[in-house]
Computed example of a mutant assay.
Amino acid sequence: MFPMLVEESAVAAVLALGAGLVRGLVVAVVALTSVVARTPARRRDARATLTILLRREPRDSFPPGRARIEGSED
């Protein structure tokens, strides 16, 4: 049973690494676009997209549609 857990955690780690690399690549491309785009409108759009990608949510926020229940400790 333990070797299976090790394999599953390794797969999860590789997937997390891949997702992080893809996100970093997307942010880098959008940041580059926000600087070198030919038209001001495209630069503005790229900066707006970059702002959305880099926005941080507070740690205690809940996903949309999930209400906080008074007195609950999630």
Rank of each mutant, 00 (worst) to 15 (best):
P3H: 12
E7C: 05
R44Y: 04
P63A: 15
V27M: 06
I52V: 15
R44V: 03
L15V: 12
P58I: 01
V29H: 02
E7Y: 06
L50R: 09
T51R: 10
R38V: 04
R47V: 08
T33R: 12
L53F: 13
L15M: 13
V36E: 03
L54P: 00
V11Q: 14
I52C: 05
A67S: 08
R38M: 06
A12D: 10
A31M: 07
P3V: 12
P63K: 13
D60E: 12
T39I: 01
T51M: 08
V14F: 07
A41G: 04
A37R: 02
A10G: 04
V11Y: 01
I69E: 14
S72G: 00
R56K: 13
A48W: 10
L15G: 01
V26N: 02
P40G: 08
A28Y: 14
I52K: 09
L32G: 14
V36P: 03
R42L: 14
T39F: 02
S72Q: 12
A46P: 06
E70P: 15
T49C: 05
R59W: 01
G20L: 07
V14L: 11
E73M: 13
E70D: 07
A10R: 01
L21H: 03
V11D: 14
R42S: 14
V29T: 07
P63F: 15
G20D: 05
L21M: 04
G71N: 06
A31L: 12
L32S: 11
L25D: 05
L53P: 02
L50N: 11
M1D: 05
V36D: 03
E57K: 14
P64S: 11
P63S: 14
M4F: 03
L21G: 04
R59H: 11
A46M: 02
L25F: 13
S72D: 06
P63Q: 07
R68W: 10
T39W: 03
P3C: 10
G71A: 06
M4C: 03
T39E: 13
P64R: 14
L53I: 11
R44E: 12
E70W: 15
A10I: 00
P63I: 02
E7M: 11
G18I: 08
E7P: 00
S9K: 08
V6H: 02
A13C: 03
E57R: 13
R43G: 15
F62D: 02
R66S: 05
A12W: 04
R47W: 07
S61Y: 04
L25H: 08
E8I: 07
L54W: 04
F2T: 08
R55K: 15
V6P: 00
A13M: 00
V22D: 02
L15A: 10
A67D: 08
